[in-house]
């Protein structure tokens, strides 16, 4: 719920606390999309069908475009250098959903990244769609339009693997259960202070708990229909994790409870370190 009273044309119109809160949130979204783009790109070769390979290529292009747009906002309104965000940060500074930290071992993992992780980020973006921070509001309509196809793809493959055989259904469940745990961690604890401030200013329109409930409902209902065990249970018409997150060590900047970070070799490839000599200034 928002108590929005003002429209913010630039981050300079926000309070100092909310400038930092907004910056941290945008970086977390951009980091997740950057890592999603990397993994989709990696899976441009190797999926079970050529159509899925082409889809991964397209999903990668889409996510990297969104990163470019978000980095532009961070550059203009939060004085962040996009090159620094990609190339000059320590791994522990990345605030992506942890599921993307390491290589995705099999197609079930990629489907979990697509259906659970990608959908979760999109759900969070919906909570910013009518943001009082106008530059963000004016950017999200197109981004969300494009994301509709991502979830269709993820949901289609979730269904395909769930129905193929017991092995694929089990692998899918294991991957999605881990992805859901990591998504819950990234959304953060209820009533977290940075989020409360963003909600009060109208920068966000929906709290993380409510957005996470919508993610759980989407995945939980699909899993229930197709008998995939994804680590969710239903109680009083609401889906929740079987294993609840312990929040005492949650860090609002990295959006993690654990000491974890993207693998160095992923960052090495993602940053194009081996092509340093070819970089354009």
């Amino acid at each position: 719920m928002s108590t929005q009273t003002a429209i913010f044309e630039s981050a300079g119109d926000l309070s100092a606390e909310n400038r930092t809160n907004l910056r941290n949130l945008l970086i977390a979204i951009a980091d997740t999309k950057l890592l999603l783009g990397y993994h989709y790109g990696e899976w441009t070769f190797g999926p079970p069908q050529i159509e899925a390979a082409i889809a991964c290529c397209s999903l990668c292009q889409s996510e990297l475009g969104h990163v470019r747009l978000l980095h532009g906002l961070l550059n203009k309104h939060c004085d962040e250098d996009p090159d620094r965000l990609v190339c000059d940060r320590a791994p522990e500074e990345f605030a992506n959903i942890p599921f993307l930290d390491s290589g995705i071992a099999n197609w079930a993992g990629l489907v979990a990244a697509n259906y659970v992780v990608d959908f979760a980020v999109t759900t969070l973006l919906y909570s910013l769609k009518d943001s009082a921070f106008q530059p963000l509001h004016m950017s999200l309509e197109k981004m969300l339009q494009e994301e509709r196809y991502h979830v269709h793809h993820g949901k289609g493959w979730f269904r395909t693997l769930a129905l193929k055989n017991e092995d694929t259904r089990t692998a899918l469940g294991v991957a999605c259960a881990r992805a859901l745990q990591d998504v819950a961690e990234w959304f953060g604890p209820p009533e977290e202070s940075a989020e409360r401030q963003l909600l009060e200013a109208g920068v966000k329109q929906e709290g993380s708990s409510s957005a996470l409930a919508r993610v759980f409902a989407e995945i939980g209902n699909s899993a229930d229909e197709l008998q995939v065990e994804v680590g969710l249970h239903k109680s009083n018409d609401e889906w929740a994790l079987v294993e609840e997150t312990a929040w005492q060590d949650w860090d609002s900047r990295s959006r993690r409870v654990r000491q974890s970070q993207p693998d160095q070799d992923i960052l090495y490839h993602l940053r194009g370190n081996k092509n340093e000599v070819f970089k354009l200034s």
Partner: peptide, 9 residues
């Protein structure tokens, strides 16, 4: 102006 896709190269 706008573009047909945000990720347009």
């Amino acid at each position: 102006m706008t573009f047909t896709a945000i990720g347009c190269p």
